[in-house]
């Protein structure tokens, strides 16, 4: 698909800053680094589990910068009472992974 990513550039900047603050190794964050950040949202663990499933697009157990932005996007939307989707909407797939 072609079209703008649902993560807006200004939001991406914010998420990138959080990503960098978590000291990624080789441009990746492991689950144990991401988990406390997501838990901080106070969302139910089953919801956060779904957020992880949707954002770890290549299923390598780590999030790169774009995957992390997807995770944060879903968490922020969930905090605004938008349901976390069961499958990742195509427009939420980072352009680098389409």
């Amino acid at each position: 698909i072609d079209g703008p990513w649902m993560v807006k550039p200004e939001e991406k900047l914010k998420f990138d800053a959080i990503f960098d603050s978590l000291t990624p190794v080789g441009g990746m964050l492991t689950g144990d680094k991401v988990k406390p950040v997501l838990l901080n949202s106070k969302l139910p663990v089953d919801v956060l589990g779904r957020v992880w499933e949707l954002s770890d697009i290549d299923r390598d157990g780590m999030l790169d910068k774009d995957e992390f932005a997807v995770a944060m996007y879903l968490v922020y939307r969930a905090l605004e009472n938008e349901p976390v989707p069961m499958i990742l909407p195509p427009a939420l797939v980072p352009p680098s992974k389409r």
């Binding site: 589990g49 779904r50 770890d56 157990g61 069961m86």
Partner: peptide, 13 residues
Amino acid sequence: QYPAGGSSTNPFL
């Protein structure tokens, strides 16, 4: 629950 193929790499499982 989780989408089919839910992975053991999920730190929330």
